[in-house]
Computed example of a mutant assay.
Amino acid sequence: MRVRELAIPGAWEFTPTVRVDPRGGFAEMFKASEFEQVVGRPFDLLQINSSTSAAGVLRGIHYTEDPPGQAKYVTCTRGAFVDVVVDLRPDSPTFGAWDSIIIDDVDRRWVFLSEGLGHALLSLADDSTVTYLCSLEYSPEFDHAVDALDPDIGIAWPTADREGRALHLLRSPKDAEAPRLRETAVARRGVA
Rank of each mutant, 00 (worst) to 15 (best):
V39T: 05
E137C: 01
P68A: 12
S114R: 13
R165H: 15
E5T: 05
A148W: 07
R108W: 14
E65P: 00
P93W: 13
S128Y: 10
F81L: 06
T94P: 08
G56C: 02
Y73P: 01
C134S: 11
R162V: 15
P67Q: 06
S51L: 09
D161C: 01
A160T: 15
W98H: 12
K174N: 11
P151S: 07
G79N: 04
R4D: 12
R165S: 13
E13T: 09
T15M: 04
N49K: 04
E137Q: 14
S139A: 15
G10I: 10
P173V: 06
V20T: 15
L149I: 08
W110T: 11
L122R: 04
A27R: 00
I48Y: 00
V186P: 05
D104Y: 06
L113G: 09
F14L: 12
T75A: 04
V186Y: 11
G118K: 03
S100A: 14
P67R: 11
S51M: 12
P16E: 13
V86H: 04
I101R: 08
W157I: 14
H168C: 00
V82F: 03
L121W: 06
P67V: 09
E163K: 06
D21V: 07
L45V: 07
P158N: 13
L88D: 12
W157E: 07
L46T: 06
R171A: 01
P90K: 08
W157K: 09
A192S: 14
L121P: 01
V85P: 02
E163Y: 03
A55T: 05
L170Q: 10
V82D: 10
I155H: 13
E177R: 09
P173N: 04
H119G: 03
F81K: 01
D104P: 03
V38S: 06
A156T: 14
A11I: 12
T15F: 02
G69Q: 12
F43T: 06
W157S: 02
W157V: 11
L181S: 06
P22E: 14
Y63L: 08
R23S: 07
V38F: 05
P16M: 10
P179K: 10
L169Q: 02
